[in-house]
Structure formats: C-alpha cells, structure tokens
Design a protein around this nucleic acid. Structure first.
Lengths: 202, 202
DNA sequence: GAGATCAGTGTGACTTTATCACTGAACTGT
DNA sequence: ACAGTTCAGTGATAAAGTCACACTGATCTC
C-alpha cells in the first residue's frame, strides 16, 4: 500500500507511526485539492497519479505552473503550513491519484528523524524551483507558436482538450490559441474538431 | 560576527563546528557569485547585503528572478548541490554583502540536528517559490506600463539605472522601456537623463 | 581641445500577441 | 425539436517585441 513511496525508506518505528497517523486518500480526475485563499489542511504526499497546479491572476487569466507526480510532496502546502497564509494557487487532479495526507506533527518528526525523507523534500523543492524558473523564461521570452507546437508534440494524438484549457496551459488567451491552431490546420499539421486536436504526420 | 544570523540559534556544539568550518566572505557590488552552467562550490548563507538572481534565456534576453537578503540561504545552490547539475541562473551582488559559505557536510548535519535551521531553510524555499509564482503571473498577464510605473514608484528618486538594466528587471526589451519612459516624460511624470530617472511629484 | 570611440538612448517600420466584441457551430437535456 | 450552453472562428484595435539605424553625451587619445 505504501509501495514505491518515500515512506518505505523510514526506520521501522517511524513507519509504524506513519501508518497510524497518515490517511491515504484517493482522488478522481477533476477533484480540486485546494483553491486560492484556502488554508492548508495537511500535507499531501503523492503516491500515484498526476495533479496540476495553476494560478489565476488579478486579470482573471490563469496559467498552469507545474505538475506533481508520484513521490512529490506538495511544496506549496508546506509553505502554507509554515507561514499560515492561504494558498496562492489551486491544485486540480488530472489522473486518478492517491495521496498520503501527512499531519503537521508527523511531518516535523519525519524531517527531524529521516535523512531520506529530508532529501525527498529538498528534491521536490528543487524541482519546483526549476520548473518555475523555466516557466518564467518561457513566458517572458519565447514565441507562442513555438510553445504551442512543442506542447502538442509532447502528447499522443488525438489530444482531447479545449482551446480554453490549452490557453491556460500556455498562459495566453483563448483567441490566440484558436488562431495559431487554425494556422497549423492550414499548414496541414493538425486536424481540428470540437474539443479534439489530431496531429498529422509526426 | 554571526549576529542576526540563523546560525545563532544552533546548539552550542554545532555552533562550534559551524564557526570552524564556515568561511565568512565579503562581496562588493557587481561581484558575480555564480554563473549559469557553473557547479556549486558551497552553500552561501547571506548574513547581510543584497544579491539579485537573474537568468538568460536562449533568446539572449535576461530577467531578474528574485533577490536574496539577510538570513536567506541560496536555494538554487542547495538544488545544484543535491542534483549535481550546474546553475541555471546567475547571481550578482547589488549591495556590499557578507555570506557564510557552508560546506555540504555541515549543511547535512545542520539539517539533521537543528529544527531552527530546518525552519529557516523551509522559509527560504517558501519565499522563493512565492516570488517566482508572482513573477510568472506578472510576466504572463500584467501590462508593461503598469509594471514599469510600480517599479519606479518603489524607489527613491533619482534612480540611477540604464534602460537596458531596467528592461532586465522587467523581463522585456530595452526599446519597450525607452518608449514607455518617453511616454511618461511627455506626461511629466518623470524627467530623463542618461543613466538616470527622476520621478516628478509623487 | 578636436576628433575618435562607445555606451546609452530615440524612433520608424513591421510582426506578434492580447483584448474586445460578436457570430456561428456543436453538444446537452428535456 | 427546441432552448440553453459550451466551444470555436474572426475582424478590429491596442500593446508589446523585433530589427535596423540614427543620434547624443561621456570618455579617451593624441
């Protein structure tokens, strides 16, 4: 049940405590783990699945910041727990996910007593920082048509997504995505349908 | 010498080890602490001063990601040390700074034995994450004229900076800054001179 | 101190991206 | 089958980024 998890690496005694105080939860696709402004209810440690973290600006526009997968701990939640401020972003489940909800006390003890756990946390933080730095560069300097094409090429055709969702992925406006996609269709690089994009000859 | 530092909080024995293995270094403004691609030579723990961290995209454009001040540990360096990858960004001293260079071994022991140190690290990470998330939103969705005005209003007139440097602060092109500033001058909100911007009536 | 040099700035022309307003097409439920 | 809703397309306009080049003020050289 804790297979493939960072929790496996814990010393026996801690593992026992962990198994007792941790709640394992399942989340279906679409489930909102937390929203902007809410306060942290416990640290989700992902065991499987995929969750996207996105934020909405004052303008009302949204952008996907990064994704979490197995063995990631939600670094945003750590920050919320430590500072007591509310979340700045929201987390939405993309693929059926399992997560261990770690209470504050156990988290502190794990940090205190397990070097492996600490390493896992630091790695999660490092990845997040790296993801965000790359994103800043993308958004600030790269052309939208290139970013769109890369995004499309990184998936399997057909891709089921609306233009609006794709706009949030890239941090742009829906109209921009529509126009760029239409342009790609004119070049016969994609075939468009409502809520679906087929890649041609890649 | 370690006044105002997170290192003060350490238990006596660790503090002794810290004082022995840590090198305190002074850096003058303009000093480059590290550059993109380089490998980590030790964790800088800032004691005083200010350092900006900026990155350069493939396009050659640069953007300031965040700033470090007293009691910040360089989270980027932690990541580099853990993963062995080179830095993705560069760090430039803005104000005369002092930093304690913490070797890997001591860092691990501090993380292991001092809850206060761990908390400091987590807070540094939290701030970085928060800074970067806000930056993503700014860059993706906010108007450049607003961002420029805010940046200007946050300083004391006169501001000594070139348009190029200001462009890097905001992650845009020099020409854009020049034009927006000229527009502000036409509205009598600023007075421009070579390398200097005076704010009028604020 | 006259010219050469160079970093810093200004600006026109053009492209790309964002925003606004609206139309129409495709799906949903009853 | 119709009403309501979500999704997509597009023209007009504004903001921002890019490219090319001219100008200006500071510094250096002789």
């Amino acid at each position: 049940m804790l297979d493939h998890s960072i929790l496996e690496t814990l010393p026996r005694e801690l593992q026992k405590e962990a198994l007792e105080s941790i709640r394992i939860m399942r989340f279906p696709p679409g489930k909102v783990l937390f929203q902007a402004g809410e306060h942290c209810q416990g640290l989700p440690l992902m065991l499987s699945g995929a969750v996207k973290v996105q934020m909405t600006g004052v303008s009302g526009n949204s952008i996907v910041l990064y994704r979490m997968g197995a063995d990631d701990i939600c670094t945003l939640s750590i920050g919320c727990l430590m500072t007591g401020y509310g979340y700045r972003a929201e987390a939405v489940v993309e693929e059926e996910s399992e997560a261990a909800m770690v209470p504050r006390g156990l988290f502190d003890r794990l940090m205190d007593q397990s070097a492996a756990f600490r390493l896992g946390i630091m790695e999660s933080y490092g990845r997040r920082l790296d993801d965000l730095m790359l994103l800043v560069e993308e958004v600030a300097f790269r052309r939208m048509d290139e970013r769109l094409e890369e995004w499309l090429q990184a998936r399997r055709s057909p891709i089921h997504i609306t233009h609006q969702e794709l706009a949030v992925e890239l941090g742009t406006a829906r109209e921009v995505v529509s126009r760029l996609l239409k342009e790609l269709e004119r070049k016969s690089r994609v075939r468009l349908a409502r809520g679906k994009i087929e890649l041609i000859g890649s």
